[in-house]
């Protein structure tokens, strides 16, 4: 890790990525989509209510939802072709005979993939200034939201890199990354909903409510939609869930960062041409 930031793969990847017109088009399209949705929503607010003061929080929810959807859509796709793309253009074997270790290759690919996602996020920051025109949003909320996005980008990037190493074809690895990502974003929510209803309707002990099952709080804490809404102060779970209401942020961050580290370690292991688990 000593000279990680002078890693040749990072400079090569960035040089390649930013030389193509596709990159500028992607940034432009991303900002256009975000901007169009925000302006459209501002128009709707202006038509609905005459007093616009304090309606910035509604705008923040919409912007956060749009951003999150774009992160879910773009981050896995950027990372899912990183290693399999090298394999497809027959450059991976050459890379593996250099002095770059599989771990370094995986980390560099991961970093260059998420750097582009961060570029998109930072480029869209000025759009958030519209929120402050209307008021009703604390700056700390925005900081929390960006940290939430950061954790998600790291997770989706790691997931994409893992799928890209595990699966040989980029198209299949992208679909797999979307599928696994969908499980965490939507699947955990569906499981939570199913378990809550199961407890409400099928457990005959009337003294027990869904709030008495800590497992549900843990599931809620790893669902990005529920956590994201909680950051935006749209609490779906109520205050009676003590673990969730107090520690949701820590649980969410720890869970996804640990999962990301595990996925990256697995990717580095899979990438080793000759796997000897007890060496090096």
């Amino acid at each position: 890790m000593g000279n990680f930031f002078t890693n040749p793969l990072i400079s090569k990847e960035l040089r390649e990525r930013f030389r193509t017109p596709k990159t500028s088009w992607t940034v432009g399209l991303y900002l256009f989509v975000c901007g169009a949705i925000i302006i459209g929503f501002m128009k709707i607010i202006a038509n609905e209510q005459t007093d616009l003061l304090g309606s910035g929080d509604r705008l923040l929810v919409i912007m956060a939802a749009v951003h999150y959807a774009l992160i879910c859509f773009i981050a896995p796709a950027l990372a899912a072709g990183a290693i399999s793309g090298e394999r497809e253009r027959q450059t991976l074997n050459i890379l593996l005979t250099t002095h770059l270790s599989p771990r370094r290759i995986v980390l560099s690919k991961m970093l260059t993939s998420i750097l582009f996602m961060f570029l998109l996020l930072i480029a869209s920051m000025p759009l958030y200034s519209f929120i402050f025109l209307y008021g009703g949003v604390a700056p700390m909320q925005l900081v929390k939201l960006f940290l939430f996005f950061t954790v998600n980008i790291i997770f989706f990037g790691s997931l994409g890199i893992f799928c890209s190493t595990w699966i040989k074809r980029t198209s299949i690895s992208t679909i797999t990354a979307y599928g696994i990502g969908f499980f965490f974003v939507v699947g955990t929510g569906v499981i939570l909903f199913f378990l809550m209803n199961f407890i409400t309707y099928w457990i005959t002990d009337t003294r027990m409510t869904p709030m008495d099952y800590p497992i549900l709080e843990w599931i809620a804490s790893i669902n990005p939609c529920i956590v994201g809404l909680n950051i935006l102060e749209k609490n779906l779970m109520g205050e009676s869930w003590t673990i969730f209401s107090q520690y949701y942020w820590i649980i969410f961050t720890a869970f996804y960062l640990v999962l990301s580290v595990i996925l990256l370690c697995l990717a580095a292991y899979i990438l080793k041409p000759v796997r000897r688990p007890w060496s090096e």
Partner: peptide, 17 residues
Amino acid sequence: RHILGYMPDFFGVYDNL
């Protein structure tokens, strides 16, 4: 790897370099 140079039968190149 320090003392070896390998050239595979088929290999790709990086387009934008």
